[in-house]
Simulated scan of single mutants.
Amino acid sequence: MDEVRNPQGQDKREERISPSRREVLAAGFGGALLLGASPPAQETPRPASPAPEGGRTMLTRPIPRTGEKLPAIGLGTWQTFNVGTDAKERAPLKDVLKRFLEAGGRVIDSSPMYDRAETVVGDLLEELGQSRTPFLASKVWTMGRVEGEQQMRTSVQRMGRGRMDLMQVHNLVDVQTHLATLRQWQEAGRIRYIGVTHYLPSSFEKLEKLIREETLDFVQLPYSLTQREAEARLLPACAERGVAVVVMSPFEQGALFQQVRGKALPPWAAEFDCTSWAQFFLKFILGHPAVTCPIPATSNPKHLEDNLKAGFGRLPDEKTRAKMVKHLGL
């Protein structure tokens, strides 16, 4: 998702023109899968040293299964990291990663569905000398056990240079086949955590069934001020079963910024240390106790810094979150 600011400093963020995930899924699972060497046993990654913001450090949330703490704001790579090898094209992304890690961010999420994003992340982290600092998450998105193993080996080498913290079954594609493989990899120490994802609320029933019947570490789902279906059953199920929640599409592909275009931030936003609409949207999500971290995507270093500020200071309580919904007329 690309982001721009108008002269008045208010946010408006525009989605790049590209196929939807539904369209990509409909296109099938073709494409060459590179064969990578089996990754070595996992080492526990070195935590980042959070850079203080006004003497503070970023909020963290524990992974319920282990208690390991993750910074509250992560980084997505859908569309934004799908670039070529040109150094000028990659320069802002390298700056994004550098500032993200310096501020204490760790969770970086990608997928083989995102074309070159995994490779770009891996290359830039290596250039920054930060290959072992982030909490890296990717996905398996193909049919069949052998094909899934090949794809995951490729992702581990491209993005993690031999390691991966979290591997997820993308959009529940051949989910039972891949979950069996993921458990084997986890037991062997090749990955640390396993999870599932889906971007459609119509699949929340399937997600909930898996959460309640399987032993999962993570689920990735859409949740925002305007898309709150997960509040009904899915987020409570995650809390009950001890499953960490990664939130995709926190800005609704930029639609939330269009909705508040030209509107001033309400003065009471200062009560929870909010100074921009991006922070308003992200702090609403973080105000739900079941959420581990949202993963907004950006290629703009300044907008990254704005997003990261949502992970500092106070969060809205339940009453204030209801007020936020009402303020936007939702």
Rank of each mutant, 00 (worst) to 15 (best):
L225T: 04
A310T: 09
S202V: 03
A237T: 10
G54A: 07
T133F: 02
E53S: 07
V156S: 01
L282R: 11
R163P: 01
L328W: 12
A41F: 11
V24Q: 15
A103M: 13
K94Q: 15
P7G: 01
L70C: 08
T85M: 04
K12Y: 13
G144C: 09
A41I: 13
I191Q: 02
L101T: 04
P62E: 13
S38C: 10
A297G: 14
L166C: 07
A230L: 03
E53G: 00
L234Y: 08
T226C: 06
C274Q: 11
P71C: 08
D306L: 03
R106A: 15
V260N: 07
M1F: 12
Q42W: 08
D273Q: 10
Q79G: 05
R90C: 05
G262E: 04
L256K: 05
G162H: 00
L235N: 04
A32H: 11
S138P: 05
V96L: 02
R16V: 08
G160P: 01
E149C: 10
G84W: 03
K302V: 09
Y223H: 12
K326R: 13
R192Y: 03
F204C: 05
R5Q: 14
L97W: 12
L179T: 01
L101F: 08
Q279S: 08
V24S: 13
A72I: 04
S224R: 05
G30K: 14
F135L: 14
G67H: 13
R161P: 00
A297H: 06
V219A: 09
W141N: 11
L256I: 05
K88D: 11
L125P: 04
V243M: 08
E89S: 14
P52A: 11
R161K: 14
P52M: 00
L172G: 01
L101E: 05
A278W: 07
T298E: 04
G262Y: 05
W78G: 01
L179N: 02
W141L: 02
